[in-house]
Design a protein around this nucleic acid. Structure first.
Lengths: 211, 211, 211, 211
DNA sequence: GATGAATGAGGGTTCATTCAT
DNA sequence: AATGAATGAACCCTCATTCAT
């Protein structure tokens, strides 16, 4: 879990302040490690530059903390909520998509940050953090695709591949929507239509992949 | 098409030298605009720093030129080669995937650069370049999805959505492969297996979406 | 001496704690004023940063206190022990060298600190402290060179100069030994050999300078 | 000799400008590596901060260059001028002292810088530079003490030790003079008296150590 | 056209010093 | 008295951009 040197300091931090730093830093690091600017982070978090380095040591230290924290959020507020009893993979994907949307609402920068972290991986985080991040990713994939009822799929179709098709379809749709959405207000207005259309994709997947 | 101030200057440039700059800059900008460093570009391109700025004015100017150039490559070496007569969308997607792999071989940094440009959009390019880039993207989608024989799909399935499922599936598979591929050599060794597996996905799509 | 503003505060300090601060600070300041870091001092002394500044006001304030304290050590534990009855300067130098070695053992950082303070003089200490330091130095020279029996020297040799030659020789040898000594263990192993060789120099001086 | 990466860049530098940087940096580094401030160096040298780093890469890089350069000065303007035919060590020491005074006049910060470099050794310079510096020092000692006519010393006196006594005496006197000298003007006014007194020490050494 | 020396604003990091508790 | 969180000035270093040649 990355018990870096500063962890105890960070834990001792005023939690409200820590929250502000986490939010500001995640938003900033979503732009990429190098582009992220600690000046903007401290300004948005409302603390001094010195304090940031007092707690996190270096920019990389902060980055590692934010990444590990994001992983923990994924574990606690996403993976923990996945219904492992659900063996109908399409139904499960529908539910996880809803979970993700909730999460994305509570932590607006979370998925952008994680996506960037993934693209930039190996460059910035230390070995331990990177390992934790990789494990989080594989755990997430596994948790979604494990324990599925393969007998639901049409005969003669590889279950693993069919599940992937369902997964990529939902991801593809989500991505395309984010792309087309300009603003947060846009997003809220379109929310209903978005869910509706998503359900239609779900139906097609069910109709075509399932018996 | 981005008639920026410097365009005529750039055209007057020795074409071999220009090619070297384009390759070097694309590779560098694939890392992201801010992270890209003009020092490395001029070093790899074998020209002086002064000359780079003589032709392109600013780093952003260079970026815009590279982005527009990449769009032109997409038009000339990808979209132009798509078989518009092909009405079987799954077959068409298979062919475009092969085209992309060819392109990726000829311009190793092209898709990485475009992906980064997409993720970073709005921040760097000027309005006109951004518009051109957006148009290229939508033209690409349209060119693939236009003029497809919807009667091939099973009855009761929205053709547009079914086509998207096929599209996202192939993209999803490509992305997952790139992720798992560590090196260029890896890639060449796995090439055959990659195509084989891709074909299997194609078959599943055909079996499930088509009558 | 050096009645700076904080002196009474410092005297009110718990003496054990003060001792720890003095030792830690002297060791740290032996590296040079600027390089010395108050964080390391408080850590080694086992007190809080706030307390350090409560007592000493500023880094310079602490430095001045340490320097004055070191001077007092020199007065009390070195100059006070010099045998003023001893008129044989060479014998006296031999004895003072032994005294210095004792002192160096009791206060490992003392001479390093004073040497650094001397090299850096004028930059850091306040005027009064600097004066006290200078006086300590000249007192030390005087105390060693005063009241010597000049009749022991060969005729036709200026006694003052001859005494200096003896002084510089012993200092020169000491310095060269410190230079060649890598570690504290080294030092203890070589201690006997060191004294032996020193005695040989003493003999030469006696043979050449004295009648 | 330390062919570091930047050496060719430095050699291509305008020599007058380089001279200004060397002088400014040597003066500044004579305060110690950490205390030295690149802002003051560039200000005194009359160049921009960027240029300093363009040529020398890092503060350490500059330091190493200055140290190597100082060693070269020692070789070319000091060791090369020592009369190796001179077998009378006392006469030789007298001559080398004069050489040093000349050097000290031409390069006012040289010996201060080297003394500081010696005290701080192992911390800052890279391995190669450190080796070169160490070699310069040992070459200097050797060149002075080699090839001396031991038959000049009184019988029963170890020649090596006797030579050291002479060496330390002259060094001791020089050091004491520098200490007492406040300003450059002081120095020039006292120059004659200084030489006179030095000669007297020489005479004593001759009278006492030689047959 | 072509070069690369020169600039300076911006960014990460350190550390003496202050202050609320 | 005692603590350590909080501050900001100062420092090293990078890099886009300019300009004299």
């Amino acid at each position: 879990m990355g018990e870096s040197l500063e962890t105890h300091k960070i834990m001792a931090m005023d939690s409200e302040k820590r929250e502000r730093v986490i939010n500001a830093a995640m938003k900033e690091f979503a732009k990429g490690f190098k582009v992220a600017c600690t000046d903007r982070i401290v300004k948005e978090a409302g603390i001094s530059k010195g304090l940031l380095f007092h707690y996190f040591g270096t920019k990389s230290g902060l980055y590692n903390y934010i990444l590990e924290n994001a992983c923990e959020v994924i574990y606690n507020e996403y993976l923990a909520l996945i219904d492992t009893e659900q063996m109908d993979i399409i139904e499960k994907l529908w539910q996880t998509t809803l979970l993700k949307m909730d999460l994305s609402y509570k932590h607006p920068a979370l998925f952008d940050f994680l996506a960037k972290a993934y693209v930039e991986q190996k460059e910035n985080p230390d070995a331990e953090t990177a390992k934790y991040f990789a494990k989080t990713r594989s755990d997430a994939v596994e948790k979604v695709l494990e324990n599925i009822d393969t007998s639901l799929f049409k005969d003669g179709i590889d279950a693993k591949k069919a599940a992937n098709i369902a997964l990529w379809t939902l991801n593809g749709y989500s991505t395309s929507q984010i792309t087309n959405t300009k603003s947060m207000e846009d997003y809220q207005n379109e929310y209903e239509r978005y869910l509706e259309e998503l359900k239609e994709y779900i139906e097609i997947l069910r109709k075509t992949l399932y018996k």
